[in-house]
């Protein structure tokens, strides 16, 4: 049994403590907005917030994070209206969309840490996440917009 605090709820899951958080979210809690891309900490499709910080959920074992606060894309905002999400729509960022939950979670964490990031800061931070459709320019514009419109 593992107890996790996900999106403001405490849930008890019957899985082995070495299961990656990614698979606990997707297969047990059915929070499929967090995506699987590589399982190796290389693509960021699985990015969630752990105590407010962007982390690769494929690299976290549930047994290690029982007391921590986990936020997924489903819990980022009640109505899907976090400033980053609104900016993503305004800039029409997604193409296939598969990487975008992770991109949005990383961008949101960046902005809460650094509300007015420089372009270099954005590029440094966001280079952790791959987008094979290469929506990168729009991602930069959306983050700049979110920083402005808060």
């Amino acid at each position: 049994m593992v107890n996790l605090n996900v999106n403001g709820r405490t849930v008890e899951i019957d899985i082995s403590p070495d299961t990656p958080l990614l698979w606990a979210l997707r297969d047990e809690l059915k929070l499929t907005g967090t995506r699987y891309g590589c399982g190796a900490g290389m693509c960021g499709a699985c990015t969630v917030h752990l105590n407010g910080e962007a982390m690769f959920s494929c690299q976290l074992r549930v047994g290690d994070i029982e007391g921590d606060t986990i936020t997924t894309i489903e819990g980022l905002s009640p109505e899907g209206d976090h400033p980053v999400q609104k900016a993503w729509i305004a800039e029409q960022v997604p193409q296939c969309g598969y990487c975008q939950s992770g991109q949005i979670m990383r961008a949101a964490a960046l902005l809460s840490r650094s509300p007015q990031p420089s372009r270099d800061e954005i590029v440094d931070e966001m280079s952790a996440n791959l987008c094979r459709c290469a929506t990168y320019s729009r991602i930069i514009r959306a983050i700049e917009r979110a920083a402005q419109e808060g």
């Binding site: 499929t32 907005g33 489903e74 899907g80 729509i89 029409q92 997604p94 949005i104």
Partner: peptide, 27 residues
Amino acid sequence: VDRLDIPDKTTGATRYSIDVDVPDMVY
């Protein structure tokens, strides 16, 4: 015009085949 698929792609709601979950399903 705005793309019709974009709002769901910002909330994680879009379903890809990898997200499909049907009763009695195994992996």
